[in-house]
């Protein structure tokens, strides 16, 4: 049971990050290498807002601030460079991640920042007979909430229908009258907001430091490759698979546990090049 809860915690964090990454690729055709840096910004903003007015307000304010930053990103960078190739955009966003990292170091310095769980969530709770840290249960709850929220949005709203249409075939969706530019702003804002939520949640969970986005972006990219580029459902499913491989690998295959998720990604992409969820067909 403990292993399942550990896998769910990790999957929740990965879902928040990879769903945002998959959204922005599906709609804007951008492999956003700055997503890890945006997650780091979210954690640092969570630290600042958390210190000033508390964790819970930070969990609301930071995603909103990050969404506003997403709009700036869309109008200031992604839209003017919309005709660039995927590889060029990957390199440009990688450069952006370096700039963001340096800005954070200038503003906050290089030292690790302390961020504790909110009052009442520092202990553990009994769930299915297992004592489990309450804060981790919160992460699982928000992760599951995000999954159902995204699912409901995509499945039952008009905007969600458009997103699915554009993700599947952009040109046809455009010919059918979908305003892809307007949709693009919404999706980029949503993606950066997700990075903000993940950053705030990660604050009491990992070390808040300038390098925290480096390893997570690698994992997030692997997850969206595993899930099928641009497939939001695939990214969510792949997050669960990746987290399960990491967690159960650490328990049963300790010698190769660090490599197991990567071996899994290679194996899946060889057998099923389009990923678990299949790729979108538009460009």
């Amino acid at each position: 049971m403990l292993s399942i809860l550990n896998a769910l915690t990790l999957a929740a964090l990965y879902t928040l990050l990879s769903a945002g990454l998959a959204l922005i690729f599906g709609l804007r055709n951008v492999m956003n290498f700055a997503h890890g840096a945006l997650y780091m910004v979210g954690a640092y903003l969570g630290y600042s807002v958390g210190q000033a007015i508390g964790f819970w307000p930070a969990l609301v304010i930071v995603p909103l601030v990050m969404a506003a930053f997403g709009a700036v990103l869309e109008y200031g960078l992604l839209r003017p460079l919309a005709k660039r190739s995927v590889l060029e955009m990957a390199l440009i966003t990688y450069g952006l991640s370096l700039i963001i990292g340096q800005v954070i170091i200038e503003v906050y310095g290089g030292n690790t920042r302390p961020l504790n769980p909110p009052a009442g969530l520092g202990g553990s709770a009994s769930i299915f007979g297992v004592h489990y840290p309450t804060y981790r249960l919160l992460i699982i709850g928000i992760g599951l909430g995000a999954v159902f929220g995204v699912f409901a949005w995509l499945r039952w709203t008009r905007t969600g229908l458009f997103v699915r249409a554009v993700s599947r075939d952009r040109d046809t969706a455009r010919m059918a009258g979908v305003d892809t530019r307007r949709l693009g702003v919404l999706v980029v804002c949503l993606s950066t907001a997700f990075a903000g939520i993940a950053g705030v949640l990660a604050g009491p969970y990992v070390a808040v430091q300038p390098g925290m986005g480096d390893s997570i972006i690698v994992i997030s990219l692997l997850i969206i490759a595993l899930g099928g580029l641009g497939s939001i459902g695939g990214a969510i499913g792949a997050s669960a698979v990746f987290a399960a491989a990491a967690t159960f690998g650490a328990q049963y295959l300790t010698d190769v546990s660090a490599l197991l998720p990567y071996i899994l990604v290679i194996a899946v992409l060889i057998v099923r090049p389009q990923g678990l969820g299949g790729m979108r067909q538009g460009s």
Partner: peptide, 22 residues
């Protein structure tokens, strides 16, 4: 052709990510 190109992108993403991690 588009699907092939997307598969190349998937490979590229996986390679870049793996290279970074390794």
């Amino acid at each position: 052709k588009t699907i092939r190109s997307q598969q190349k992108v998937a490979g590229l993403a996986a390679c870049l990510a793996l290279a970074g991690s390794l």
